Simulated assay, not measured.
Amino acid sequence: MADIFSSFPPGLLVFLAVVLFVAGCVRGFAGFGAGMIFMPVAASVMLPSTAAATFLFIDGIVALPLVIRALRLCNWSTVLPAVVGAVIFVHVGAWLLANADVLVLRWTIFAIVTGLLLLLVSGWRYERKPSRPVSLGVGAVAGILGGISQVSGPPVVAFWLSSAKEPAIVRANLIVFFALASIGTFVAYIFNGFFTLEVFHLLIMAIPVYAIAIYLGSNGFKHADPKLYRKLAYGLIALAALSSMPLLDPLFR
């Protein structure tokens, strides 16, 4: 425990635990969105690479029970090509995180996420059967964003929400996609040296808090109205856009 406090003051740990608890509840309910909540706040009080590596680790381990249940429901014909695109292009995102201008990256993320949200709100629907090239392209965009910021959700969420699929199938697609795509992100982050001692100190607090939150959120989904799911998804994409906008830094920093 002393090792945790050597890296993070007690007050900061409590603050991060609260943010992580909220993020975990949302992840358990919606199947995505935790990174959109945790990353903007965490990256304002520590290195973005430390925040991203911490979140990747806990989400990959703690969300495993969600994955096992989602395997039976997901649409593999569109999930697998998206995973391939994400696994390949996450290395581009990780390289950008390590080398590119952070301000430019954040404005780019804001533009992409905002555009996807506006497309969804407009009522547009992708009514064709998702082809492999389209799924691959969506996964590639998600992989780049995930490598940069662990906010890979908006492209795949917008893609699958625009279909006529039931919320349970959309949620299952997202859970399986993130689980498989995270394997490539792990490799990319290892190559870039993002798993530092500070990350493992933070995991001592983060793992139990996130596990409890995911359990509570997952149970909440069983009793939710399908319309609520879609509204929450739109709200989370909007949150991702706003939190990535540099003009709002005074609110987080």
Rank of each mutant, 00 (worst) to 15 (best):
M46I: 10
M46C: 12
M46S: 09
M46D: 06
L47C: 01
L47D: 13
L47T: 03
L47H: 06
L47G: 06
L47Q: 14
L47E: 12
P48M: 09
P48Y: 13
P48V: 07
P48R: 04
P48N: 15
S49H: 10
S49A: 13
T50E: 08
T50N: 12
T50Y: 01
A51K: 03
A52L: 15
A52V: 10
A52G: 10
A53V: 01
A53Y: 00
A53L: 01
A53N: 03
A53I: 02
T54L: 11
T54A: 09
F55A: 08
F55H: 06
L56T: 04
F57C: 11
F57T: 15
I58Y: 00
I58C: 00
I58S: 00
D59I: 00
D59C: 00
D59M: 01
D59P: 01
G60K: 03
G60W: 09
G60E: 04
G60L: 10
G60R: 04
G60A: 11
I61H: 04
I61A: 13
V62R: 07
V62Y: 01
V62N: 02
V62G: 04
A63P: 01
A63R: 03
A63G: 05
A63S: 12
P65V: 08
P65H: 08
L66A: 09
L66W: 02
V67C: 05
V67F: 15
I68H: 13
I68L: 13
I68R: 14
R69I: 04
R69A: 11
A70L: 08
A70Q: 09
L71N: 02
L71P: 03
L71E: 08
R72W: 05
R72C: 00
R72Y: 04
L73K: 13
L73E: 11
L73R: 14
C74R: 01
C74K: 01
C74F: 10
N75A: 14
W76S: 12
S77R: 15
S77I: 02
S77F: 04
T78W: 11
T78R: 12
T78G: 06
V79P: 04
V79T: 08
V79A: 08
L80A: 11
L80N: 03
L80W: 14
P81F: 05
P81I: 08
P81S: 10
P81M: 07
P81A: 05
A82K: 07
A82H: 06
V83Y: 02
V83A: 07
V84H: 04
V84R: 03
V84C: 05
G85S: 05
A86R: 07
A86K: 11
A86W: 02
A86I: 11
V87C: 13
V87I: 14
I88C: 12
F89T: 10
F89K: 09
F89P: 07
V90C: 11
V92C: 09
V92M: 07
V92P: 03
G93C: 05
G93T: 11
G93N: 12
A94K: 02
A94T: 14
A94V: 15
A94L: 06
W95H: 13
W95Q: 03
W95V: 04
W95G: 04
W95K: 09
W95M: 09
L96V: 12
L97P: 06
L97M: 12
L97E: 01
L97N: 07
A98F: 10
N99G: 10
N99W: 07
A100P: 05
